[in-house]
């Protein structure tokens, strides 16, 4: 089992590379796995697309509650995380570049940096989640205490609640979607970091160079995709309520 987890291919230590048995050439193998990765990302788009659709519909139904709930999120942390992820996309691209120019140490450095930035993102996410837990903005009965959403200092929202007693429930839906969307995204981050760790291991063994770096490139596509999802999540979840302040 000398192949990488991402593509069925052989990279023999003798410097000569053979395609896996089902392929005729290395080039065909590379083209095929690239197409496969893009198709996988299409399924990911549809997966997140379902969530985004649900979000858009409820935001349209309950604009005030969503704005009020959104304003309790910390734009500062969200903004920092956006920057962290953009940087990690850069380091990921640099890891691939290092392979292209045969700088093996560079691959290790940039893969490490990418993982570090990914972990930073998750750490900040954990801080944010903790804040939500403290404020009891956790929907359903995940916590022992029930969901709790205060409306003071928020005139428009208070008016809305007077009109609709289900108002806190609408905010609860916002937080449900917030946790599900960011949670699914964070799961993707964790999977990405695990794959990066495997790639790091293979890079240390010298598996990748300018001739063969397809797994790096494929993981790069995945990593960029996960970043882009966040680029959409950030304004939808954090900046929505900002204008009401």
């Amino acid at each position: 089992m000398n192949s990488t987890p991402l593509v069925d291919g052989h990279a023999h230590g003798d410097g000569h590379r053979h395609p896996a048995h089902q392929f005729e050439t290395m080039e065909q193998q590379k083209e095929t796995s690239t197409l496969g990765m893009w198709l996988f990302l299409v399924t990911e788009i549809m997966f997140f697309g379902g969530l985004f659709t649900a979000y858009v519909i409820y935001r349209h139904m309950y604009p005030d509650a969503f704005a009020a709930a959104s304003s309790t999120l910390d734009v500062k942390w969200g903004g920092i995380n956006t920057a962290v992820l953009i940087c990690s996309s850069l380091t990921m691209a640099l890891a691939i570049r290092s392979a292209q120019v045969n700088w093996r140490k560079g691959i290790l450095i940039f893969l490490s940096l990418t993982m570090l930035l990914g972990l930073t993102f998750l750490g900040i996410k954990a801080i944010e989640y903790r804040a939500k837990f403290v404020e009891r903005h956790v929907p359903g009965d995940v916590l022992n205490e029930p969901f709790h959403f205060e409306l003071e200092n928020h005139h428009e929202a208070a008016v809305a609640q007077a009109q609709d007693p289900l108002y806190p429930r609408h905010a609860e839906i916002f937080f449900a979607l917030y946790f599900i969307m960011t949670g699914v995204h964070a799961t993707h981050m964790i999977i990405g970091i695990l794959i990066l760790a495997v790639l790091w291991h293979f890079s240390r063994k010298g598996k990748f160079d300018s001739e063969y770096y397809n797994p790096l490139e494929m993981t790069g596509l995945y990593w960029h995709f996960v970043d882009i999802v966040w680029i959409f999540l950030f304004p939808l979840l954090y900046l929505l309520g900002a204008h009401t302040h």
Partner: peptide, 25 residues
Amino acid sequence: IMLGTPVIAITILLVGIERGFHIGI
């Protein structure tokens, strides 16, 4: 399959979360 299955996946996930944590999606 590639375009549809992910949508049922997320739908089922939402049903599971709603049922498991009593969230009213």
